[in-house]
């Protein structure tokens, strides 16, 4: 255990090794490690972002599906309502048409009745004149008694 010049030579060797490590060993390795750490961090961030995007997209698609369902249901409801309306319209127009036909028929019947009564009245008057002329024979002149015949016709 004697201190001698070895101490200084060892110290010099130590200094050289420290210098070498500081200069040539540490920085490149540190750079490599830090670059890799950055790459990994970026990758993780990208993964996180992707997950987030996926979540957003699935939310959006769920919204779209819900919207579409809602609209389909609305359309069906409207269509049902429209169908009911059409049926109602058809019913009421058919009823109107029927009423109109009925009224027309009634009027025609009345007219027919009136005409039949007129002709009947005419025929009764003629029958009365024929009867009277048969009874009266020559004494009665159709032309001379036209006034009388007209008044009788009016009374019928």
């Amino acid at each position: 255990m004697n201190i001698n010049f070895t101490l200084f030579s060892q110290a010099m060797a130590f200094a050289v090794f420290i210098w070498f490590t500081v200069k040539f060993v540490w920085p490149p390795l540190l750079r490599a490690i830090e670059t890799r750490q950055k790459t990994i961090a970026d990758g993780l961030a990208a993964g996180e972002r992707g997950k987030h995007d996926l979540e957003l997209a699935s939310h959006r698609s769920a919204d779209l599906v819900r919207d579409a369902k809602q609209r389909a249901a609305d359309i069906i409801t409207q269509a049902e309502k429209r169908a009911a309306e059409i049926v109602e319209e058809a019913k009421s127009s058919a009823k109107d048409e029927g009423d109109r036909i009925l009224v027309g028929a009634k009027a025609e019947v009345e007219q027919e009745v009136f005409r039949a009564r007129e002709s009947l009245r005419q025929q009764v008057a003629e029958l009365a004149v024929a009867g009277a002329s048969k009874i009266l024979r020559r004494e009665v002149d159709a032309n001379a008694h036209a006034d009388l015949l007209t008044s009788i016709k009016a009374e019928l």
Binding site: T6, L7, F8, F14, A15
Partner: peptide, 9 residues
Amino acid sequence: NTTFALALS
């Protein structure tokens, strides 16, 4: 000598 060299450095 070695350990002293290191410690003194």
